[in-house]
Amino acid sequence: MNTKEIPPITSNIYIILSCYNEEETLEEVVTGLVERGFKVLIIDDGSKDNSPIIARKLVKKFAPNVYHYRHTINVGLGGAIKTGIKAALSKSADIMITFDADGQHNPDDLYEMYPPLQEGKADVVIAARDFEDMPTGRRFGNTVMNYITYVFQGSMVKDSQSGLRAFTASAARKLELKSPQYGVSSEIIGEIKRKRLKLVEVPMTTIYDQRTIEKGTNTIVGLKIIFEFLNETLKR
């Protein structure tokens, strides 16, 4: 996308960057986001590598556009997103976008995400990966997760496990998220339906390398998500 096509940022946008042991990619990802004019909330979920040191350095380097919140112990993706939403709301954000710190997301995809929210055309925007581009195992896993999300949350979307989601502040306030871990992605899909929020799905490009493939939703994570849903369903 060239400079002419970049939609203007007319609202207070914060990126919720969940980070767990991402010393290799954190600096590059944050720099990419700040250069594009976004404010970044680094939510370090109890990293044991050098991520907190790098995060502190980035806070100083890009002040006042980067903030660092650290979980003293690892909670999980859901916990990081919840902390991120609270942090963004405390900064009077108009729009907040969840983003992964492992380098698998392309920051240029953000240009598709905030315009529908700024224009009031949507409450939530989710960027869906193109399943055709995925490695076979990953494609199968994500398709299964879409159906599991449909069964437990009652909503079929193109990519239920996408980490790239944008919310308006009022939509974020309405979300009641219980899952502390990976189940949060499907839970968000369910909450969008339960709270009658307007969802727009946009396409995204994903950068796959060995590292991001190892870190994503694998079979064990998938089984854990199913177990979490069963547990939550039984408790209702």
């Binding site: 502190r56 806070v59 660092h68 919140y69 979980h71 609270k86």
Partner: peptide, 8 residues
């Protein structure tokens, strides 16, 4: 704790 002790 994270929200209380954040760095900015």
């Amino acid at each position: 704790l994270a929200l209380k002790n954040h760095e900015d």
